[in-house]
């Protein structure tokens, strides 16, 4: 007699409707995109016939695609990295009890309530060479004598855009960290203080390891948001001058809605989707293996 494992049909049946719903909402656009990317598409979205991988071949022949890809990586790493480095200390400070903490938290969170596009427009005005607030302030304080044209050359413009990117990512990331900090067990700190641990040691050996899952979530979510973020760069420079600040998503937008190359644009967005998909899976696997390893280590120590 073979022993049969009983498949629990009832629970599976019960999650089936929501699973199907989720798949159709998430899956359909991706399938549609994949289908579009293998078609010749007219300027106005009419399918003109199946062309196979011609759109992809065109993308891979395009030098602007590669420079945008490299810039996307720089943009994502710099913005996400910068955000994490700044947000963690802010969250730790806001987690401490001090007079006016509520107000301080509101001030840090407030920029979140303003749309990215509006923030970008404000920065564009502030950074204007002749009429901008930034140059006026710097000149009033005699830090500079001549106005700086912040957005005139690509390297400077891109740096400024990264800084703005960091600024707008801070509220969200700080919120994740604050949630994490408030759930940390207080007794480990008390025990460590009794054992004579210094503040830095508390941070390095208790806060940081315990915060790991929250940092990981912040990394994954921020990478996804920042990688796909159009408004800041689009509003401030439209990817210019001379395509020097184009990242994939701004280049994609230009292709789709200015040049009307919807097929090529679909191919690029499919490539972007796979890059993000591979990154997320790889990162999650890596994190899971680390946790697994450290769990193993603990077992060994115990033995």
């Amino acid at each position: 007699m073979k022993s049969r494992t009983r498949i629990p049909t009832t629970p599976l049946l019960m999650i089936l409707p929501s699973f199907l719903l989720a798949m159709s909402i998430i899956g359909y656009p991706i399938l549609d995109l994949a289908w579009t990317s293998m078609q010749e598409v007219s300027r106005f979205g009419k399918m003109m016939g199946f062309v196979g991988l011609v759109n992809f071949a065109e993308v891979f022949r395009d030098p602007l695609f590669y420079s945008s890809l490299v810039r996307t990586v720089i943009w994502t790493v710099a913005v996400v990295g910068g955000t994490l480095i700044i947000s963690l200390p802010i969250a730790i400070m806001l987690n401490d009890d001090f007079y006016g903490r509520g107000l301080a938290r509101v001030i840090v969170m407030l920029p979140w309530a303003i749309s990215l596009t509006m923030t970008a427009v404000l920065w564009r005005w502030s950074l204007n060479g002749r009429a901008g607030l930034i140059n006026a302030t710097l000149m009033d304080f005699h830090i500079i004598t001549e106005p700086i044209e912040w957005l005139a050359t690509a390297p400077l413009a891109f740096t400024v855009e990264i800084l703005v990117g960091i600024l707008v990512s801070i509220p969200f990331t700080t919120t994740i960290f604050l949630g994490g900090l408030s759930s940390l067990p207080q007794d480990s700190y008390e025990a460590a203080v009794v054992d004579g641990a210094k503040p830095w040691e508390l941070f390095r050996y208790i806060t940081l390891p315990l915060m790991k899952p929250f940092i990981n979530i912040a990394i994954v979510l921020n990478v996804i948001y920042v990688f796909n973020s159009l408004p800041i760069i689009w509003v401030m420079t439209e990817g210019g001058p001379a395509n020097g600040t184009d990242i994939l998503v701004t280049y994609l937008y230009k292709l789709a809605f200015r040049f009307g190359q919807l097929g090529k644009a679909s191919a690029i967005s499919l490539i972007m989707f796979s890059v993000l998909f591979v990154f997320t899976i790889a990162y999650v696997l890596m994190v899971m293996r680390q946790e697994h390893d450290s769990a193993d280590e603990e077992v060994k120590h115990d033995a």
Partner: peptide, 21 residues
């Protein structure tokens, strides 16, 4: 010209003119 023309849109240039600059 005004310095760094690549930072000046049509409106920026016209604004300079309106300001008499």
């Amino acid at each position: 010209t005004q310095p760094s023309p690549t930072n000046y849109t049509r409106e920026d240039v016209f604004n300079l003119f309106k300001q008499g600059k």
